[in-house]
Design a protein around this nucleic acid. Structure first.
Lengths: 177, 177
DNA sequence: GTTATTACAGACCGATCGTTCAGTAATTCG
DNA sequence: CGAATTACTGAACGATCGGTCTGTAATAAC
C-alpha cells in the first residue's frame, strides 16, 4: 500500500513491491493471487471502515443533523486511522474489475451520505442557499483531501483535526463578531 | 488530457491517445517529443493559470484578507475553466523529471498561499483556534476536490460554485440564528 | 529424524510499453 | 504544374510488464 500510494498503482510493478520486501517477485504470488487482489484487500478495508462509521452514526442519533455531525467527525477518524487504504480508494479510476467494483460500492455509500445531508438541510441545520448535493461534495471534498497531506507521524493531531474539520465545514473559518 | 484523466497517466498508453484521435501512434511523435512532454504542456498551463490568479489577487487588494477572498473565488474559476489541466496537476506523484518539476513549482505556489492565509489570520479574519497551515489545507482541499466531480456540462454553474465555496469555507454551511 | 508442508528463487512466457525509422500520402508554395 | 514541406503509416526495437513453472531451501509435524 505504501508503494502504491507513493508511485500510484499503475506505476508500481510487482517487482517494486517484492524488492522493497527483499523477495523475488515470484514469492509474492505464493501469498497473493494477483497484483489486483492486493489492491482489492486494501479497498475493501477502506470501504468497510467508512461504511461501519456511517452505520454507527445513523444508529446512534435520531436526527439527520446529529447523524451528519457524528459521521463527519468519525470519517476523519477512519481516514487518519486507515490512511493508506483510504488513499488508495480515493484514487481508484475504474481501470479493472476490482476498481469498478470498488467504485460502485463507493457510489452507493456516497448516496447514503447525500441523503443524510439533504435531510439535515430539511431539518434547518444547513443553509438552503447551497444545494444539498453540492454541500455534500464540498464537505467530503474537504475531508477526503486530508489524504493529500495528513501523516500519522506529522505535527497535526488526528483528534484535533476532526474537531477542526467540524468547525470549518459547519461554522466556517471566519471569525464572527 | 481527457484520457489521462479518465484512466490515469500511467495507465494510458500512447496507442490509446493515438487511437482516440484516429491516428497511428507514430503520428503523435511528429507533434510531440514524448509522452511526458504532453503531460508537461498541461501541467504548465494549470500552474500558470493558478499563479496568475494569485498574482492578480495580491495586486488588486491591500489586505491579506481581501487577497485571500479574491484568490479563493478565482481559484475556483481557474479550476473550472481549466479542469483537465488542473486535474492532471493534482494527481502528479513525482514519477518522472516532468512530474518532479511540477511538484516543486506547486510547492512554491502553495507556500505563497499559506503565507497569505497566515497573514489573514493575523488580521483577525480567520479564527485562531485552527492552525493557519491546517486552515490553508482545508480550504484548498475543498477547492481542489472540485476536480473529482465538477463537470463543465453538468448541472452546477461555475460562477455560483465559486460563491458557494466562498460561503462554505468562510461562513460555514450551518445556518446561524 | 523422516516427512509433509510452506516459503522462497530464478528462469522464462507472451503481451505491451514508449520510441524510432524508413517510406508514402497529403498539403502548401512558387 | 512541379517542388518542397508537412502529416502520417506500419514495422520493428529493446525494455518491462504481470504472471507461471520448476525446483530447492526452510520450517513444522509427528
Amino acid at each position: 500500500m505504501r508503494i502504491f500510494n507513493q508511485q500510484g498503482y499503475d506505476a508500481t510493478s510487482v517487482s517494486d513491491i517484492a524488492a522493497s520486501l527483499g523477495f523475488a517477485k515470484s514469492a509474492l504470488y505464493h501469498h497473493f493471487e494477483s497484483k489486483a487482489s492486493i489492491l482489492e484487500l486494501a479497498l475493501d478495508d477502506a470501504l468497510s471502515g467508512l461504511e461501519s462509521a456511517l452505520d454507527s452514526a445513523v444508529r446512534d442519533n435520531g436526527s439527520a443533523s446529529a447523524q451528519l455531525r457524528q459521521f463527519v467527525h468519525s470519517a476523519v477518524g477512519v481516514l487518519t486511522a486507515r490512511l493508506p487504504q483510504v488513499m488508495l480508494l480515493l484514487r481508484v479510476r475504474g481501470n479493472s474489475e476490482v476498481e469498478l467494483a470498488a467504485l460502485q460500492r463507493r457510489r452507493a455509500f456516497d448516496q447514503r451520505v447525500a441523503m443524510i445531508v439533504a435531510a439535515a438541510q430539511e431539518e434547518g441545520m444547513l443553509r438552503k442557499e447551497i444545494d444539498a448535493s453540492v454541500a455534500t461534495r464540498l464537505i467530503f471534498g474537504m475531508i477526503n483531501s486530508l489524504v493529500e497531506w495528513y501523516r500519522p507521524d506529522g505535527p497535526v493531531d488526528a483528534a484535533e483535526l476532526a474537531d477542526d474539520v467540524l468547525l470549518a465545514t459547519f461554522d466556517g473559518l471566519q471569525t464572527h463578531p
